[in-house]
Amino acid sequence: MADEPDVKVYALSTCGHCKNAKKLLDECDVSYDAVEVDLLSGDQRQAILEEVKELNPRCSFPTIRIGEKVIVGYKEDEIKEALGIS
């Protein structure tokens, strides 16, 4: 799909909402990049935290970027809308 939005999920390996968000993206057959921030350390972790804070100053998880849109938390309707799925 040419116009499929670029999707990135910032998650935690222990978080149920994060798992649900990834499951929803899988069910919608969307390819995405996911990073489990709690499994990172040192400079890599700090860099990713800066990235998250730019998108979501609360720095909470999941933070999901779909193209230009940012969705904070597992919000099924908002995620589907941002994907252009009704």
């Binding site: 222990t14 978080c15 998880f61």
Partner: peptide, 20 residues
């Protein structure tokens, strides 16, 4: 399972949905 994992790696049951 997340709480037990956090107890294991941090020594305390940090919230599974927050970055400890």
């Amino acid at each position: 399972r997340g709480l037990l994992a956090n107890k294991e790696r941090y020594g305390y049951m940090a919230c599974p949905c927050r970055l400890a």
